[in-house]
Structure formats: structure tokens, C-alpha cells
Computed example of a mutant assay.
Amino acid sequence: MAGTDFTDLKAVYVNCTLKPSPEVSHTQGLMDESIAIMRAQGVDVDVIRAVDHDIRPGVYPDMREAVPGGGQDADDWPALAERVLAADILVLGTPLWLGDKSSIATRVIERLYGMSGALNDRGQYLYYGRAAGVIVTGNEDGVKHVAMNVLYSLQHLGYVIPPNADAGWIGAIGPGPSYLDEGSGGPETDFTQRNVTFMTWNLMHAARWLKDSGGFPAGGNSRAGWDAGERFDHPNPEYR
């Protein structure tokens, strides 16, 4: 878009399909539509297929160090976390299973949560200053349910959720073609095309504003300050 430069932004797309590479992922198919728009605007895009990595269950930054002397023997999450934290934009993609997000998506969110106690250089929670969205595919109901769940989780961790930050596609309820299958109509669906386009642009705009501001505005939201005794004008209960 004229007048807006996104070429210094970075985005990471985490595909939470249950299918390991090189199997076709319909979720990736819809994510690729969003990725194409970002790359056309010069955004540096990183793509992670979570199931291809050994991401251990748990809510610690590194499950190898979770319990002294009793941690996991392997964990790919710390290296993946570096890629997530290097990005201004996070897009989480998931298929639908039983009307909900995949088990892989749950695990990724749990591991993101495991780092939520860390702080940025302003004393804010670590994910402040980043934007996030969600993409959902399947052939059963649940797109909005999953979007609500995922977007709530990501904003709770500190991500900024811009308007229309979700996009999805479902075919006929029950067994039937998936997004990339011939004759599904998925890639041609105007509703989905519009939503994924608006989501992508709104993520870029939000990330642009945040980056130009040096992060999420500081003021009344420093965990470090709160722990040090600052109360940012919160009424003192002793004087009520």
C-alpha cells in the first residue's frame, strides 16, 4: 500500500497440523495465501511446522531444565522460541478436530505460556510489542470457537490482536473435501479470501505501529515496576 513500508517487519507462521512433512497440509494451504500477501509487501516470513519438531509438553521455557536432575532428554522448543521472539507478527494455524484446535496447537500455546513470566527491556511481559492472528481450516464446525480460544490465549500472553485477526475455511460439515482438494471451492471462496486479506493487512499495520513506537507504550504496565512497589494510580485500599 502506498506510503506504508513493511520491509523491516518479520513474521512467523506456526502451522499446527497433525501431518508431518512432506504430507499436504490444508491449513498450510490457507496460511500460504496470507504469507503471499506479506511477502509481496517485503515482510520477512518464517514458517514452522510444529509437528516436525520435538516439542515436549510442559510450561517451562526449556523442558530439559524443568526439574533439576529430572528434566526431558530433548526439547526443540528453545530454538523455535528464538524464531518466534525474532518476529513482529505471529500467526498460529490449526486444523479442526472435534470442533477444537489441534493438540499440537495446544502444546505450542502451552510452551508460549511457559515464557510469559519473562520480561522485555521495559519491564513489560515478554510478548508486548508484537501482533498476532489465527488461521483455521477443517470440514466441521468450530472456526469461531477456535479463533476465540487462540486469540484470547495470545492476548493474555501480551500479543496485540488487531481487528479481524482471524480467518478460516470449512467445507460441508462431516466427511468431504478439505481446503486444497480439487473441487472443494476453498481457494475460490470470497468470504475466506476477504478475511485472510484483511487479517494479513491488519497484522502488518499493527506491527508497523508497534515497531515505530519502539514497542507497546510504557506506562502503568511494568511488571518489574509493580514488583518493586509501584501502583500506577491504583487506589490504595487502606484509604477506602
Rank of each mutant, 00 (worst) to 15 (best):
M1I: 12
F6V: 06
T7S: 15
L9S: 06
L9I: 06
K10F: 01
A11H: 01
V12S: 01
N15C: 10
T17R: 05
L18T: 14
E23L: 13
V24S: 05
H26F: 15
G29Q: 08
L30Q: 14
D32C: 09
S34P: 08
I35K: 09
I35S: 04
I35F: 03
I37D: 01
M38A: 14
R39C: 05
R39D: 09
Q41K: 15
Q41V: 06
G42P: 10
V45S: 02
D46L: 12
D46Y: 10
D46S: 15
D52Q: 10
D52I: 08
D54R: 13
I55D: 06
P61N: 11
D62A: 13
D62M: 11
D62Y: 07
R64S: 09
V67W: 00
P68C: 04
Q72A: 14
D73P: 05
D75S: 08
W77K: 04
A81V: 00
L85H: 10
A86G: 03
A86M: 04
D88F: 05
D88V: 03
I89S: 07
L90Q: 00
G93C: 03
K101W: 10
S102C: 01
A105V: 14
I109A: 04
E110S: 12
L112S: 07
G114K: 02
L119Y: 08
N120M: 07
D121W: 10
G123Q: 06
Q124F: 03
Y125D: 00
L126T: 00
L126V: 09
Y128I: 00
G129M: 08
I135G: 06
V136E: 04
V136D: 07
V136K: 10
V136R: 12
T137G: 02
G138W: 06
G138L: 03
E140H: 04
D141Q: 13
D141L: 10
V143W: 05
V143S: 03
K144C: 01
H145V: 08
V146R: 07
L151Q: 09
L157Q: 09
L157V: 00
G158P: 08
V160R: 09
A167Y: 04
W169Q: 03
I170M: 12
G171C: 04
A172P: 02
I173Q: 10
G174M: 04
G174N: 05
P175T: 00
P177L: 06
P177E: 07
S178P: 00
Y179P: 00
Y179E: 02
D181V: 01
E182M: 11
E188F: 07
T189W: 08
T189A: 15
Q193N: 13
Q193I: 13
F198N: 11
M199E: 07
M204F: 02
H205L: 14
A206G: 13
A206Y: 09
L210A: 12
L210F: 14
K211C: 02
A218T: 12
G220H: 09
G220R: 00
N221Q: 10
S222P: 06
W226L: 14
E230G: 08
R231D: 09
D233L: 14
H234S: 13
P235H: 06
P235W: 03
N236V: 05
N236P: 02
N236E: 11
R240L: 14
R240P: 02
R240W: 12
